[in-house]
Design a binder for these strands. Structure first.
Length: 686
DNA sequence: TCAATCCGTATC
DNA sequence: ATACGGATTGAC
């Protein structure tokens, strides 16, 4: 680049101005900047391309958002320095979506674009051109191998001659088991935009159902984005889609693919070569032509929350896409989140649920049992410290040559404080935050507002004594093998996740989210140590416990085929009740009502501001918060930082996000030191 | 009186 | 971030 070349440059004849989003992380620079398009880039510097521009003296990356005739900028415009690639990787609708997501989460467009478009891989980009597809676009190692469950792919159907896309199934199975299901599929095929909150039946082959919804949408000439929580779910969905749609009508997109394969899959979608993109949350921004359906499975799984700024949640991103693009939406799971319930109650989405008779026919028999581990009469139970009902249930299943699933929680859940008498979580009388005991014999202190509750009395039972929950009962799992000598014990957890186990007698000990599918279903499912799940210091503890139980219990055979579930928990607790009755909608409605009462999300919009105490104070002093905003805290966060919570009515959500974004910008412009993290809808509230 | 430096502000 | 401008300070 010689200096003389600069003097040669002249602006392009048509639309000489490029509006560019510069890739800098500073909040106050979150707006487009205008540059001149040099004549030689007139045809190639199109909207959606990556460019390099000189910005404040340095060369930075940017996104060309649009080309215009004139600029509103009073000063002199600089030229685009370079076109990184002529590939318009940023589709216009994704640019719009990214802006909406940035606004919702008090973040910058550049931050969201970094999440939305994978890093360029030049070699991959050159492999193919939009005109000549190659068969190598989905490489062999993108396709799941032999370890993928055999049940997941549907048998290939004869493609209909006109479209090449098979007909959806009919009858009382599949979507036919849900009264609103067939109508939902019809609407997808007809090009309409139905929105569904789907409560999947136990034993449901959910990957097949999602694949059928995708097929219906593709039949209607539209595209699909479907997001699942982890690699194992993705393998299952991939296999189902391969069966339903063939091997080359979809791509999988996840960060785990690595840069080259990820960019290859991304390009295939962007170039309109495949109508369906499936993936983990990395796929939530995937460009798809004529988007007709967004789907998310198990939206309560916290893996759906993006850990990088501005921390968007896959469900919210997908619903925003559906809203902006007039696409259908499918929010499915065995459980139902309070957020999904809100969609139903506001009328934004409709329920797709089975009738009670169908539920009864498909559910295993669920029974609660106390968590007293003394059971001397059964020596095996005593060894494993199992309640006797759990032990006898497992024993019976094993005798019937059926596999048994034992769910144990992961370690690391923070105990909170509960009433020693009735075990109701202890909440701050002032702000309803969680109480904690700073020392064993101290007075409880609110973790949100810091107020001391010296005279705490349980609102449920009037009890005045408090107890801290005890964590860690993994030993129970290790001792199980000894309780059932001669029975093979396999574990599935963080280190090694089993996808599938054979149908004979055997024990599988799994942590939540790592439960394998069993051939023919599990004869028994034991849900142990639920006390640790239910007493987590988390707003979503009950919802999360039920989600994990339903997900595990859904792997059991129906009661009619001998399937039994034992949950070691007090049968009077609401999540346990919901499990016994297999009624996730009832629990979600109850949960949402409670959150309305307490002023918690999603009934209200919350944001958190985390940083050093002076930095947090400065940001909040700067922020012009909406009038109804309530500021809670400070609560201590990691390494001498602190956290403030701001809550507003949902109608003020946009104003809150904007106020925080502007305040962060003012701070960044002034000093740039002492970072503050702003999070809208933080997953963890305390 | 001029230049070196500091601080604040814009970055096209 | 960096780079520029206006104000400020200090030495001639």
């Amino acid at each position: 680049m010689t200096p003389s070349r600069h003097t040669d440059r002249r602006p392009a004849d048509g639309s000489p101005v490029a509006r560019v989003c510069v890739d800098v992380p500073l909040a106050h620079l979150d707006r487009p900047f205008d540059y001149l398009v040099p004549a030689e880039l007139a045809a190639t510097a199109v909207p959606g391309t990556r460019v390099k521009v000189r910005f404040a003296g340095q060369l930075v990356d940017g996104w060309l958002l649009e080309r215009t005739e004139r600029s509103g900028h009073a000063g002199r415009l600089a030229y685009l320095e370079k076109l990184v690639s002529p590939e318009p990787v940023l589709a216009p609708e994704i640019a719009r979506l990214a802006r909406a997501v940035a606004d919702r989460y008090a973040g910058s467009l550049a931050d969201v674009l970094r999440l939305a478009v994978p890093p360029r891989h030049a070699r991959v980009e050159k492999e193919t051109t939009p005109e000549e597809p190659t068969p190598d676009d989905v490489p062999p190692d993108d396709v799941p191998g032999d370890d993928v469950p055999a049940d997941a792919p549907r048998p290939a159907r004869i493609p209909s001659p006109t479209t090449g896309v098979p007909d959806p199934p009919t009858g009382a199975d599949g979507w036919g088991a849900y009264p609103a299901g067939p109508g939902f599929l019809r609407a997808l095929a007809d090009g309409r935009a139905p929105r569904a909150v789907w409560s999947a039946l136990p034993g449901e082959d959910w990957p097949a159902r999602v694949a059928e919804a995708a097929v219906a949408t593709v039949r209607g000439g539209r595209g699909v984005v479907a997001v699942v929580a982890d690699a194992r779910d993705l393998d299952r969905l991939d296999a189902a889609l391969t069966g339903a749609l063939g091997p080359d009508r979809h791509v999988r997109l996840s960060a785990a693919l690595g840069p080259a394969r990820r960019y290859r899959a991304f390009l295939a979608a962007r170039r309109g070569r495949v109508p369906v993109v499936i993936g983990t949350r990395a796929a939530m921004f995937a460009p798809v032509e004529r988007l007709g359906l967004v789907a998310i499975w198990d939206d309560g799984d916290d893996l759906h929350a993006e850990p990088r700024a501005p921390y968007p949640h896959a469900r919210e991103v997908l619903l925003t896409r559906a809203q902006l693009g007039g696409a259908a939406a499918l929010v499915g799971g065995h459980a139902r989140t309070a957020e999904a319930q809100l969609l139903v109650e506001t009328g934004w989405a409709r329920e797709v649920v089975p009738e009670r008779a169908t539920v009864r026919a498909r559910t295993p028999a669920v029974a609660p049992t106390g968590d007293d581990p003394q059971l001397a009469r059964d020596p095996g139970a005593a060894t494993a410290r199992l309640p006797s009902l759990a032990w006898t249930t497992a024993r019976d299943a094993l005798r019937a040559d059926a596999p048994v699933l034992v769910q144990v929680p992961r370690r690391g859940y923070l105990p909170s404080v509960s009433c020693a008498d009735c075990r109701a979580p202890a909440r701050c009388p002032h702000c309803a935050g969680p109480l904690a005991l700073p020392s064993a014999r101290g007075t409880p202190v609110c973790r949100w507002c810091g107020r001391v509750s010296a005279a705490y009395a349980c609102p449920e039972c009037g009890g005045r004594r408090l107890r801290a929950a005890v964590v860690g009962a993994r030993r129970t799992a290790e001792e199980l093998g000894r309780a059932f000598p001669g029975v093979p014990v396999r574990t599935s957890g963080r280190e090694e996740v089993l996808t599938r186990v054979p149908g004979g007698a055997g024990l599988v000990v799994a942590t939540p989210g790592a439960e394998p599918v069993a051939d023919g279903g599990f004869g028994a499912v034991l849900l142990l140590d639920s006390w640790a799940l239910l007493t987590r210091a988390d707003l979503r503890a009950g919802e999360e416990a039920l989600r994990r139980w339903l997900t595990a219990a859904a792997l059991a055979r129906p009661a009619t085929a001998g399937g039994r579930v034992v949950v070691v928990a007090d049968g009077g607790l609401a999540p346990v009740q919901a499990l016994l009755r297999w009624d996730p909608a009832w629990f979600a409605a109850r949960e949402l009502a409670e959150r309305r009462e307490l002023g918690f999300p999603p009934a209200v919009r919350m944001a958190s501001v985390t940083g050093t105490a002076p930095a947090v104070a400065e940001l909040l002093a700067e922020a012009r918060l909406p009038e109804q905003a309530e500021v809670l805290g400070p609560v201590p966060a990691d390494d001498d930082r602190e956290r403030m919570l701001i809550r507003v009515p949902r109608s003020r959500a946009a104003a809150l996000a904007e106020a925080l974004h502007v305040a962060a910008g003012v701070r960044a412009a002034r000093k740039a030191a002492d970072p503050v993290r702003v999070q809208v809808d933080p997953l963890e509230l305390f």
